[in-house]
């Protein structure tokens, strides 16, 4: 349904060209949930913002690639065409519901807006649909609460309102950018369950952007691991957690405190992610990698299949020199 090929989004800043997204490809089928995992600055959010034309240009620029949504290339689409896609075919929820809801407007006004714009409903019909959608995300007394302002809701309830708003037009794709990072654990669980439940009912495909591997393992079918603007590993979720085929993924998993023995020092990835303004000749993880050799710094790796549906961009794994799962 959605096919992204070789997406490149660069930012032209005073300090040089930041290669935030540098050749990312992935696809999304109807009803599927994929995860894009990575640390701050790995390009996971920029990837998704590029699809919806939400990158500020300048300084941002989409340098190449295609993103086909049933034949329509989102990267080439006019603003008018994109407006028909945003909020109708592809919706988005963000990390912080307080900053993505308008504090001056009642929930009702914000909820019915997409219906008025995209579906041409009259106000009364839109209002009825909006109340229904609030009930579906588990907001009690929806017909009363819909008159409230965002600040009258708790964090978890606001995120429910955001989900209701994003799904009100029954979009084909929902992009969830760290939707639970700002929430308490018990609320996080409720919100994740809600997203899964609504997805099942509506058949929406979901792109889950997060840095939390545990969350990914619970909700996603397939995971793309990003590092320094590139996808370094792509695998079905259970494979990624049992048979990681890239040293970066492996290192990330080893540094989760929950998986470590108490009293033993935590495994850490030494160093920092590379400066994206400086082009790297070889593998961008090489400087922090336990397995890197001189050759890793010379040849730029590309994703290659290591097993069915499982790709890795590690040169030494591809050549069979190392086995990460022995």
């Amino acid at each position: 349904m959605l096919q992204v090929e070789d997406l490149k989004t660069y930012f032209h800043t005073r300090d040089g060209i930041v290669r935030a997204v540098d050749g990312v490809s992935f696809s999304l089928e109807k009803g599927q949930t994929i995860g894009i995992v990575g640390e701050s600055g790995s390009g996971k959010s920029v990837t998704c913002y590029s699809l919806l034309g939400l990158i500020p240009m300048p300084p941002g620029k989409i340098e190449g690639g295609t993103a086909k949504l049933d034949g329509l290339d989102l990267l080439q689409a006019s603003e008018k065409e994109l407006r028909k896609v945003r909020g109708k075919r592809i919706s988005m929820i963000f990390q912080d519901p307080m900053t993505s809801l308008n504090p001056y407007l009642r929930i009702s006004t914000q909820l019915i807006e997409p219906l008025l714009i995209h579906e041409g409903l009259d106000k009364k019909a839109a209002m009825a649909r909006a109340i229904e959608s609030l009930e579906e995300v588990g907001i009690p007394d929806a017909s009363l609460r819909i008159r409230s302002y965002p600040h009258e809701f708790s964090g978890g309830m606001r995120q429910r309102v955001m989900i209701a708003m994003a799904l009100i037009t029954k979009p084909e794709i929902l992009i969830a950018d760290e939707p639970t990072t700002a929430l308490d654990v018990t609320v996080q669980k409720e919100v994740l369950d809600l997203i899964k439940d609504r997805q099942r009912t509506l058949g929406t495909a979901v792109i889950f952007i997060t840095h939390d591997l545990a969350v990914v393992s619970n909700v996603c079918d397939h995971v793309h691991v990003m590092y320094a603007g590139k996808v370094v590993e792509s695998a079905p979720t259970n494979r990624l957690f049992t048979h990681a085929e890239h040293p970066y993924t492996k290192a990330l998993q080893r540094s989760i405190p929950a998986l470590q023995k108490k009293g033993e020092p935590l495994y850490t990835i030494e160093g920092l992610p590379p400066d994206l303004t400086k082009p790297v000749a070889g593998c961008s993880f090489a400087d922090r990698c336990d397995f890197a050799e001189a050759s890793c710094r010379e040849t730029a790796p590309v994703l290659k299949e290591a097993a069915a549906g499982h790709e890795t961009a590690c040169l030494r794994r591809q050549s069979g020199e190392i086995d990460l799962n022995s």
């Binding site: 654990v185 018990t186 996080q188 994740l192 545990a214 393992s217 619970n218 259970n238 957690f241």
Partner: peptide, 12 residues
């Protein structure tokens, strides 16, 4: 117990 059950675990 509620807090513990809400922690997302890495499921394999």
């Amino acid at each position: 117990k509620t807090l513990l059950s809400a922690i997302p675990h890495v499921t394999r």
